[in-house]
Design a protein around this nucleic acid. Sequence first.
DNA 1: GATACAAGATACGCCGTAGTATGCAAATGC
DNA 2: GCATTTGCATACTACGGCGTATCTTGTATC
Lengths: 225, 225
Amino acid sequence: MSLSRVNKRGPKQVGLTEDPRPDEKSGSDREVAILDAAARAFMEMGFAAASLDRVADFLDATKGTIYYYYRTKSDLFAAVNRRAMELTAEAIGPFAHAQGDPRERLWQMSFAHTLLIIQRLPYLRVAAQGLELYLSGRMTIDEQKLLKEIAALRAGNEQLYVDVIREGIATGAFRNVEPKLAAKPVLGALNWTSRWYQPRPRETVRQREAIATELATFVCAGLAS
Amino acid sequence: MSLSRVNKRGPKQVGLTEDPRPDEKSGSDREVAILDAAARAFMEMGFAAASLDRVADFLDATKGTIYYYYRTKSDLFAAVNRRAMELTAEAIGPFAHAQGDPRERLWQMSFAHTLLIIQRLPYLRVAAQGLELYLSGRMTIDEQKLLKEIAALRAGNEQLYVDVIREGIATGAFRNVEPKLAAKPVLGALNWTSRWYQPRPRETVRQREAIATELATFVCAGLAS
DNA sequence: GATACAAGATACGCCGTAGTATGCAAATGC
DNA sequence: GCATTTGCATACTACGGCGTATCTTGTATC
């Protein structure tokens, strides 16, 4: 396909610093701006229906810019998903890895997760759509690699919930259920927020926290013994 | 657009019976077969990415058949969604409208809802994708009408949950929360099943019921006071 | 101030697919 | 048994959009 493309590894680093990856997790400012625009476009139309020209509109630029930083539309979509997974891991990871009461930790994870969805709706809504759907047919080899990578990140985040649930069962705080199965409705209750939530102009922090509190309380109560 | 189309109201009724709508809810056998094929295609690729040729493949027919019964791709998609909503209403309606303990009724609704998702996965997964996403931009007038109609059906089903939750709060069975907000994680936990569930060849009825039992127990416990 | 390269704009080729026009055999009516 | 309509299949057109080739401008380097 694109074997002749040589310069498509993003912009060169400035200066003489030879550090191989100065900002591995999120790329440059420009790349993040592109991801933001892409997240908005994919959120509003879905991957297949959203055109790169629409992404460029949100960027106030043209397609040329996008293709300078990303090789294909699938690449861009995967990058949005990857970033969404990173954001999620950052939000819930600290509580997942902490010590202490599993029930309290699950509550904090759910609370933080919900607030994240509200704050970063475009990314999380795109992530909730999933990319398996769209890339499931006629995939190239590198698209399969992308899919595997993102799926692994997603599974990693889900595993954080599974682990906490398992701990909670061990301490007797939670009902004795299969942790992997029990994690499904938990994730469902949380991720569904990306579907129904609509940002309101004058919404206060307090109102958002009320939503997050209800969801966190709901999932903890749902597992309680 | 298609002002010249005259014969696109589906097949004529046979015989001389003049009853205007002999089978309003689901159409003819052939239409249902087309919907089944469309549901499978939309499930596997999403609306925008699924081609009508792919739908025709599942039908073991060609596009000509589809366009004989449905005017546009959007029409077909809306019909799949409409049927999904009808199936849902049939599954949960009886318990929603019954007398008796709201908690027990919510449990039965959730149980039936989950089993429905498992049994009719293509329809319910397509419905969970939603159509607002894909039709949100550049809609024609009749597409807007379709969207409104499906949204109303969806809202009706959600309202069934809201009502039961409200009753449960009144009887003291459920925590005192805003019913509309509380219904969100309930729907999320249930609908999420259409995302993660994958049919296994030798799965028993008992195994499916185990999933439905866990989800129903989860949502009831999540609201319990 | 000439050179080289980074960053992005523009224009276009090519492909997939929604929708249409038409053909055609089998059922149906008279 | 002839005419008409039904129920599709086939062939084709139109168009939107991905990806690419090429051109332009700004900026660092010597």
